[in-house]
Design a protein around this nucleic acid. Structure first.
Length: 261
DNA sequence: ATGGTAGACCTTCTA
């Protein structure tokens, strides 16, 4: 089973390119972030024609996440537990049905910039809520994948110029510590387990020639529960997608799991 | 060099 995560930066602005990638890469499961539309505006029929079941947690203008799966999605949950007043659509979770079911959570973790604002505090509170919820999910002892745009650069090797990013919310010690805390729960960073080569970036800013200069960062991650990590066979960052026409600033990351073994 | 681009959408916010 191949599970993808991709921040598409508006699913409707990029529909043709997104569908072309899906037709070619054909992941079994995909987590999309920044769909930037309400549920009714999500192009479900186009994905259904490619054989996907669709679950959406949308929002007008900002954020919005979706889950796509070749097999039916069960026990769908929308919104990260822990704050009933949180209006931002950044979390969706479901069980991927089949002979080897796996629970998949798709996340769009808050950016958190600027650091001296409420946005950074919200990011850290959101990460604390994710930690608590991940702990509850791990207690189920199911195969589990938490995939998405974490907006966290885990280590200096995950950014082209660590010094330039030192004060950014994506690379602040507090953000990195919260990411490590997720791993201490027993979650494995799929990219590090399968590859771990420095320069495996997943995002290049639209500005200042970041892509042609390869000024990238690795912020799109798949974290795996112990049984899911044991079944990991590969992780592929679809880097070439960034160089296509009208690209998202993020590229897809695909993890392959062999859960039957 | 303190810039630059992209998307949603109504003038500015978010990233």
């Amino acid at each position: 089973m191949r599970i993808a995560t991709w921040n598409v930066n508006s699913v409707n602005a990029r529909l043709e390119a997104v569908l072309a990638w899906f037709a070619d890469a054909a992941p079994d499961v995909a987590c999309l972030q920044e769909i930037k539309c309400v549920d009714e505006k999500f192009p479900s029929e186009a994905f259904e024609r490619l054989g996907y079941n669709v679950a959406i947690h949308g929002q007008k203008t900002y954020n919005g996440v979706a889950l796509l799966s070749k097999t039916p999605l069960e026990d769908v949950r929308r919104g990260l537990p822990g704050d009933d007043g949180d209006e931002q659509a950044r979390y969706i979770e479901a069980v991927i049905s089949g002979p080897s079911p796996v629970r998949v959570a798709g996340i769009y973790l808050p950016n958190g910039n600027p650091v001296d604002s409420e946005k950074f505090a919200y990011k850290l509170r959101w990460m604390d809520r994710l930690n608590r919820h991940a702990r509850d999910l791990l207690a189920l002892e199911e195969p589990l994948v938490i995939a998405g745009d974490y907006n966290v650069i885990p280590e200096p090797q995950d950014v082209h110029d660590p010094a330039a990013w030192a004060g950014d919310a994506l690379f602040r010690p507090e953000s990195r510590a919260a990411f490590r805390a997720l791993k201490w729960l027993g979650l494995t960073d799929a990219y590090m387990a399968a590859d771990g080569v420095p320069g495996g970036y997943t995002f290049w800013d639209y500005q200042a020639g970041a892509w042609p200069r390869d000024h990238g960062i690795r912020i799109d991650h798949l974290l795996l529960s112990p049984t899911a990590a044991d079944s990991l066979t590969s992780v592929i960052i679809h880097r070439d997608v960034r160089g296509r026409e009208k690209p998202s600033d993020h590229v897809p990351v695909v993890a392959a799991l062999d859960l039957a073994s």
